[in-house]
Design a protein around this nucleic acid. Structure first.
Lengths: 244, 244
DNA sequence: AGACGATTGGACCGCTGGTCCAACGGCAGT
DNA sequence: ACTGCCGTTGGACCAGCGGTCCAATCGTCT
């Protein structure tokens, strides 16, 4: 590096899409989604703002790329160990995604924002192959995959939204207790009362896993019923859709 | 008052929180989430921008209020008819939410953005009471409710994200076909191939309903197992959590 | 009648994402 | 070894955003 100081176009450390995404992830992790501004990225890379638009089309594309990067590492992380038991593998995959989003809450929000984005496709593909091992085929697998992916993404988004505003652990308990108290107060419904009582003590991660198990139970039950000749895609006698 | 035109504080048609939310919904429906700007709202109400901050704290609060308004009307809509069969009622509720979000895609995005927001609480309460009728109590109901609500919200967000960019019906088919073709092309995995083939023909609403049925099946199967003495909240022998 | 407080609306601020373009320098052709 | 060129860089600039502030204005209560 010949000239360190004055103002040097053509810098020595190349500016690349990879480096930009990396910087974006760092900023998102420390400053949250609202902290990700093009200005912050360029400042972090100590470059001008026009420069990054040669490597990234959009702020949206940058966000999607950052989320895909995080999810990609999750997938290789859970994919290495054998997948003897598909159910076990699905639980591990779901947990991996959950934990990743717990560590990077912005990913949870991002995954729900755009459809068919690369990160979501990754998840779909993996889920699809496990469901295949489980014996689901055709539309049944499509339906099951849709259900599982949507459940995971929904839980992730909700958990991420909650985790975002309670960074410290002590805050969390106080916040949940205050919320439960307020809810209990203005909603006399006994079911709400009981639900509110469970709020402060509950563990998002355990509950998430319980949901995955419910799903798996439903899938296997449905497959058995189908194998026995019944049609598990019965549904309600669907009324004409009130589209408007 | 000699001059009627120049600038007349104290208007005749009162400015109220209700009117503001109403205007916001209208703007959101026609212009999408990105169309909702404080400036647009004030223009729509032909008032100044400072005025609305006397009735609404924030743009975020306005969004949450708008979403709550939509969801509230859905809930009363599906709540009127009897709820003899709780499963039927849950399906109807889920479908109501789905259709509402299909009609107002921004609601789907909003519901995933903030936790414990009024609209989501409404859904929780309703689902909780139906699950009660189904025989679930305590943590089991909490888990089942979490699973259902998160699935519904996740599906809603994904569907909304998709629906947002394909307003015309013909666009949708072309878009999905193009997507499937591209996916088929760069992913040789046979499962992906089969999945891609199903993409253009599939119906989001039917698939959503199929997912609801999977969860209902899982919940009832779990309840039966619990009644028989087993513990349905088994899960994987959970490894120590890799929090970081 | 008088004054006070709630409501109104427009000026203003700091900030955002994105475009534009002059300046620069590594690389290819000679 | 020279030189012209084109991809890269970075800062100036723009329109638009959410939110604050405050003078002006009625409705209302004393």
């Amino acid at each position: 590096m010949p000239d360190p100081t004055p103002r040097s176009p053509r810098r020595s450390d190349a500016l690349s899409r990879e480096r930009i995404v990396e910087a974006a992830i760092q900023i998102l992790d420390t400053g949250g989604e609202s902290g990700l501004t093009v200005r912050a990225v360029t400042a972090h890379l100590s470059t001008g703002r026009g420069a990054i638009y040669h490597h990234v089309a959009d702020k949206d594309e940058l966000l999607a790329a950052a989320a895909d990067s995080v999810i990609a590492t999750v997938m290789v992380g859970v994919g290495v160990d054998g997948d003897e038991d598909p159910k076990r593998a699905i639980r591990a995959l779901a947990l991996g995604i959950f934990d990743a989003i717990d560590a990077h809450p912005w990913v949870g929000t991002q995954l729900s924002r755009e459809p068919l984005q690369p990160a979501v496709l990754r998840i779909w593909r993996s889920v699809g192959s496990y469901l295949q091992s489980l014996g689901a085929t055709g539309p049944a697998r499509s339906d099951a995959g849709s259900a599982l992916v949507n459940y995971v993404l929904g839980s992730a988004a909700q958990h991420a939204a909650g985790a975002r505003r309670m960074v410290r652990e002590t805050d969390r308990k106080a916040y949940l207790e205050a919320f439960a108290a307020q809810w209990t107060h203005h909603d006399p419904d006994p079911i709400a009362q009981e639900a509110a009582a469970l709020v402060p003590g509950h563990d998002d991660r355990e509950q998430f896993l319980a949901g995955v198990d419910i799903f798996l139970l439903g899938i296997t039950a449905g497959l058995q019923a189908t194998a026995a000749g019944a049609d598990h895609r019965a549904g309600v006698p669907t009324e004409p859709r009130p589209r408007r």
